[in-house]
Design a protein around this nucleic acid. Sequence first.
DNA 1: TATCTTTAAGTTGTATACAAGTATACAGCT
DNA 2: AGCTGTATACTTGTATACAACTTAAAGATA
Lengths: 228, 228
Amino acid sequence: MEMQYPSSWLQGASLGERISCELRLQIIKGVIQPGIVLSENQIAAEFGTSRSPVREALKTLSTEGLIRLERMGAVVLGLTSKDIEELYDVRFLIENFVLQRLAKDPHENLVATLNKIIDKMEFAAKYHDYVEFSYQDLHFHEVMIAAVNHTRILHLWNGIRHIVLTALLVATEKRFAKHTQGAATVINNHRSIVNALVSKDAAYIEKIVEAHFEDTRKTVSDSIFHTE
Amino acid sequence: MEMQYPSSWLQGASLGERISCELRLQIIKGVIQPGIVLSENQIAAEFGTSRSPVREALKTLSTEGLIRLERMGAVVLGLTSKDIEELYDVRFLIENFVLQRLAKDPHENLVATLNKIIDKMEFAAKYHDYVEFSYQDLHFHEVMIAAVNHTRILHLWNGIRHIVLTALLVATEKRFAKHTQGAATVINNHRSIVNALVSKDAAYIEKIVEAHFEDTRKTVSDSIFHTE
DNA sequence: TATCTTTAAGTTGTATACAAGTATACAGCT
DNA sequence: AGCTGTATACTTGTATACAACTTAAAGATA
């Protein structure tokens, strides 16, 4: 089987993790379509491994909601347009919670860190590096979420992290293939979030975060489904 | 090893699920304390199984945040008072979202279903059946969450479901051991939620849900830790 | 004594083997 | 034809085997 997941994101990863990342990508890309039934033996054969890491991968994807484990085989659920909408509902819930807390208890170097990440996004955009761009986009949000020191919220995030990253990857790749123009909008959206954060205005933060995710959701959804 | 998890909740469960449920209970009860390092072989020996289902169980507990998988062994994190506070932060986020949606799009028989569940709680309380009481308490919330038809929110819930159920179980057992008086308060709290739901008043719903979880958090936290 | 080497036991990640259950197709019967 | 029983291939859940790595301690050496 042809590996498509960025190998730089798989340093030190076990076979189970590699398989889950690759399957996740193929499911989100639509290469593996909803309704298909996967069996452990078949996947193990395709990846040239034993069933053990495959079982691990399937369990991961199952808790992420991309497949459903049944008695005979795992049926692919995929990531529909509605799923992405729901995903961004949750992203808003998490991040609004996070930013409201960060506004109350400001962190030392957070804003500087975030600005540096945005600069890295600009750099990546300049060189059409969609892998790096997607990663820094994710990283931006992850840094904020980690900063609040809320274990359970961080766990919620970890539960959707891989899906978000992979969806960003697929969407960004498609968009960068034509032009890197949209990157400026994405970067501006992130700067707006930093501005909202420093404003410490609860209502303003909520408005900006909601707008950000509504915009991102539309962009990602369009890129993934409105294929060409 | 002595099994303490209700066997009625394990019908048709695999060894992996049974082990995760049992370990989860022991961790939340504090029988297995934070800092302890668990090894797969050791646990497999205690349960009289092979490492395969143990690995599955440890991975489950790891994604739930009760343990942390390291290179050599799994270190127990446990469920501290702060963890419970965070857990109820998330319960509020989820359930407020759910109830706001349910208020907008009312469901046919939902209120009747909820009232029936509350009646079952009263029945369970009358017979000091803490297992049934805990389960119906969980079921009440689960029915509402399932009613909104939001896959991703349901997944968030599933990620904390087992922890919530087990914490309720431990707390309710301890309280019912002395008196079943507090059950009336819990039941009233649930009736308040139903009232808030039918009111369709967004602000009122938020207020009631927040109060409910604040009260429950305190009760659960006290029961688990202020063991006396 | 202090430090480096080596040796041993323990750990996980992966592969393989086995057992029990399920869907499917096919043969036989009415 | 339609139904029934059975054989068969395939599936998962669990057990066992093996390899690579980590940790810690024992022992040699200066």
